[in-house]
Design a protein around this nucleic acid. Structure first.
Lengths: 238, 238
DNA sequence: CGCGATCTTGAACACGGTCAACTGACGTGG
DNA sequence: CCACGTCAGTTGACCGTGTTCAAGATCGCG
């Protein structure tokens, strides 16, 4: 299905109204002199990198359509997938610390991304306290999410991690106004495993396990969650 | 040794010059009207909470002396220790997202903490772009560190995690101008285990293992690192 | 239809967890 | 002064979750 075709059954796009970087994108009044414009609709194919770990942070990004993964290379094993980006998510904010991107952002499929030049973000954040506070909030929210992921990785079993992952995706779809029960996984098993610190075999086994219990049916990349409560209460042991 | 005794061999304090919140603390010119003052020298005893998870974020904090842990309660197992705070570290920034603290901060021993009222931080960040950028940088640096911890928890073995932990502490002491080779652990084995997603038994075994290999000698809470390179290259298997 | 990539399933193994006993430091009280 | 209790840490034996290695199954696509 080409990008310009009508929207598929499973939503891939998001309206600007619910974009995380909306305050950095929309027109302001008065427009500060020399304010760089937002470059919209950067296009990526599956496997293309939006930015690479270690590269200077030159822009912030917002996903408009499609999905990306944030990856960190860890010596001695495969890459870790820090986070998956859904339409409306922002990326590149972690670079504010060191002026360099800490991770790489790679497209999982055809993507459309809006690019906010760093100078624009700075000028707006410096000129409008509300924008500055918004940016602080975005970074802080990502921070508390990241630390919550640490908790999960450190203290929960494989089944609990996978259940948490599915429920997290569900709630993110739901936040965007789509069904929390049924959606399509934009990533393959290997990417799920790399994200959760598991192996593809374990992920596969657990998914069939969930299916046999009637908690969720996962066929290929198509997910339907039947018993969110059971998934949420998924016990530590088998 | 009582707290009022002369400074011990192992440093516990930090100068304001290297405090993460210095730009929010020191005098500014011109002073904005109604700028709340910094409350310095809040004192805590071992076990006291500086703030509790879920409480409204009313201030930012900087550790002046002593050590704290940031904890998150995870249902079904003990608390997870998200991070340890050393003198000079800041806390409470993760609340910028939700206006509530995501974690609890608890003193590991007698502590002295400076408290920056949130209003002060906001006013300064809004009035001085450099301060705003500094705060963004602080939160972003914490974010990239948190995501790096996720990588470690997801993809490295118990021995590697413990080695990473010791090396991280070493480099943080070194940043503060103290020896990276020899220092005192401010936390007990349980707290190390809760931080790394391990058990006290595993931590204990690995420490004696490191000692037998001559990589590090850990007697009680006293640490001396002999072969940082070996620790850094610590292999996945035994 | 056939090839390759992705996913699933099975069997053996190992890392780290669990349970339990032991050690040593420290403090209290007889 | 030493017996005792407590608590943190260490050590050992066993076990289970999740990995590893190796076959199959399934799907997409030429």
């Amino acid at each position: 299905v080409p990008m310009d075709a009508p929207v598929s059954v499973w939503p891939r796009q998001i309206a600007c109204a619910s974009c995380a970087l909306k305050p950095l994108c929309e027109a302001v009044d008065p427009v500060p002199r020399g304010l760089p414009a937002v470059e919209c609709r950067v296009r990526l194919e599956r496997g293309d990198a939006l930015f690479e770990a270690g590269a200077p942070q030159s822009s912030l990004y917002a996903v408009r359509a499609g999905f990306l993964k944030l990856t960190a290379d860890v010596e001695g094993s495969g890459p870790h997938i820090v986070r998956f980006l859904l339409p409306g998510d922002a990326a590149g904010l972690e670079g504010f610390g060191s002026r360099r991107h800490a991770f790489s952002a790679v497209a999982l499929e055809q993507c459309e991304v809006c690019e906010v030049p760093l100078r624009r973000a700075q000028v707006l954040a410096d000129s409008f306290p509300a924008v500055g506070a918004h940016v602080r909030g975005l970074v802080a929210r990502e921070l508390s999410q990241a630390e919550r992921r640490c908790v999960v990785l450190a203290h929960r079993s494989a089944a609990q991690r996978l259940a948490d992952f599915l429920l997290d995706l569900a709630s993110r779809w739901s936040e965007r106004g789509y069904s929390a029960q049924a959606f399509r996984l934009p990533m393959d098993r290997r990417e799920i495993a790399d994200h959760l610190g598991l192996t593809i075999e374990t992920v596969s086994r657990l998914l069939t396990d969930f299916r046999e219990r009637g908690w969720a049916s996962v066929h290929g990349r198509q997910v339907v969650l039947h018993e969110m409560e059971s998934l949420r209460a998924c016990p530590r042991q088998t």
